[in-house]
Amino acid sequence: MKIASLQLKVYREKEKNLEQLAEWMKCEKLQDVDMVTLPEMFTCPYQTELFPLYAEKEGGPSCRFFSDLAKKYGIYLSAGTIPEVDENGRIYNTAYVYDRTGNQIAKHRKMHLFDIDIQDGQTFRESDTLSAGDEVTVFDTEFCRMGICICYDLRFPELAGLMAQEGAKVLLVPAAFNMTTGPAHWELLFRQRAVDNQFYTIGTAPARDMGAEYHSWGHTIAVDPWGTVVHVCGEAEQIQITEINLELVDKIRRELPLLRHRRGDVYEVRKR
């Protein structure tokens, strides 16, 4: 299986982001891939006050665009994330996945909201405008079962562990770590989750734009189930193609059977 991760710049105009994606899809490097993955908040600048302005209902214009693109190229498309508004006006940071025929096969609402205040670093409060999702998301392809989570979700090992227990062999993570947390934890977290759960981790980030209000770390990454970094980008726009070896996943899980050795019967905080 070949996965192409597109580290693209995010423009202020929603339509320009969709137009640039259509142009990148014409690239010869993408003609024989099975899946394309996009960054977090791909159609919207990463600013909390803009999320409600850019939000669309499920099945809206951006979703139809993604569906048509997946069908046109006969690929699986993990369409990064976009702001989603539900029937009650709640806003979510939502990832959609489409199959080769353009059907939506997965939807994940970011479960853990990025509310942080780092001294001499980044301050950010997604909860000012976003609501939190509450579902673990896995989906099936003709190759294997995959899981998907969003950026800050990756910091919580319980979530990745549940996806592995549900059979995921690849974890997709549209994400936009910043210039404080990125250098410190980006590679570390993707390697940790890969080793913990013995699956591939694919992190797709926006390209860095120092003219924007939010500065993405970039460094779109792929890590194999042994914890080895297979590919990592820099900060500029780039395509990263990863060949997934599912036999390696099976081999590592067979020889070092962490999932089978889990002690779910004792992993709880007990009252004393």
Rank of each mutant, 00 (worst) to 15 (best):
A160L: 04
Q165P: 00
F199T: 04
Y46A: 07
A176P: 02
L69W: 02
T37F: 04
D68W: 01
R208N: 13
P52R: 03
F124P: 04
F114K: 03
G147Y: 01
T81A: 08
F42L: 01
R260D: 15
H261L: 15
Q240K: 10
F66P: 03
T242C: 10
M25R: 08
C149F: 11
E84G: 03
L113K: 08
S5P: 02
G102V: 07
T94V: 03
K26Y: 02
S78K: 02
E268T: 11
S62R: 01
G161I: 00
W226A: 15
F199W: 10
N88V: 00
G147F: 00
D34S: 13
L6P: 09
G102D: 06
A70L: 06
A168L: 05
A70I: 04
I221V: 14
V230W: 01
D115K: 07
A70P: 10
S131E: 07
S131M: 02
K71L: 06
Q119L: 13
N245W: 05
I148L: 09
K72E: 15
G60E: 01
T180I: 09
Q165S: 12
Y73R: 12
A70F: 03
T204F: 05
G147C: 06
T181D: 13
L38Y: 05
L50M: 10
F42P: 02
A176G: 04
